[in-house]
Nucleic acid binder design. Structure first.
Lengths: 132, 132
DNA sequence: AAATTGTTTGACGTTTACGTAAAAGAAATG
DNA sequence: CATTTCTTTTACGTAAACGTCAAACAATTT
């Protein structure tokens, strides 16, 4: 008897709208059961939602996320599927490595600007402005 | 006399369409000069394009990228602007830190799957399949 | 000169990821 | 019982980021 959630439960927990959750269902990212007419989300749905949102933050499309889920679900290994899987994985990995690099560079730049900014703010604060 | 580029030069170098470059101009990300009617991109445009594409890979919108460029251009420090700048920077930094975390987790997961995948592929290759 | 190639400016089309509104049913609460 | 509150489906709307013509002009190349 694992936990179950209503649509607003998950909506609130993850800070998304119920519309979003229904949309994700349309896109096959979550597959809640029904209590009569109402959606009942399982902890599996919750995990998927979490993964989906992380994917989103990384710029993956819902479609790509669904594909990843399908790959996660790949249980019995048909050779052909596995090969495709391996190729896709490698593409993703390369992409992520690039992204990690991007993030590092961007963080460096931002921290430079932040420093500059703090310095300038400090100056004006102590009245050390050039002109006045 | 720094280098200059045609639209197809940059288009090819960065693997984007000319339409994209024109679109980025519409959005104020690049500001090529003109040789008669034709666009002439400077190395400054090239740098901006590079930055823009990195921003895109990280999931920034063109609008956010433009805002960042405006911040880059912020030369004379009006106190108010600087404060807003600092706040925006901090939000971005938090976002990037989260993203870095996301990337790490995702890379871990992917490498796990890759390993599994390789193992399965190796098995089928050597005919060590369970049933047959 | 004719044809190809590269460029321009519109301008409408498309995909993604939801937003938003409407109408209606179910459940909780005063 | 009446009224919120939560939920449902249906369906049109929208913002972003280009795609995709079309028509026209300029510079090369044959």
């Amino acid at each position: 008897m694992s936990k179950s959630y209503t649509i607003s439960n998950l909506s609130q927990e993850f800070g998304v709208t119920t519309r979003t959750l229904r949309h994700y269902e349309d896109q096959g990212l979550v597959t809640p059961a029904r209590d009569g007419i109402n959606r009942i989300y399982t902890s599996r749905d919750r995990v998927r939602l979490k993964l989906a949102l992380r994917g989103k933050r990384l710029g993956f499309s819902l479609n790509e996320i669904r594909e990843l889920f399908e790959l996660y679900d790949l249980a019995s290994g048909e050779r052909r599927k596995l090969e495709e899987f391996a190729i896709k994985l490698d593409r993703r990995r390369a992409q992520l490595v690039q992204q990690r690099e991007d993030v590092e560079v961007m963080l460096d730049e931002i921290s430079f600007f932040a420093t500059q900014c703090q310095r300038l703010l400090a100056e004006t604060e102590t009245g050390k402005t050039k002109a006045i």
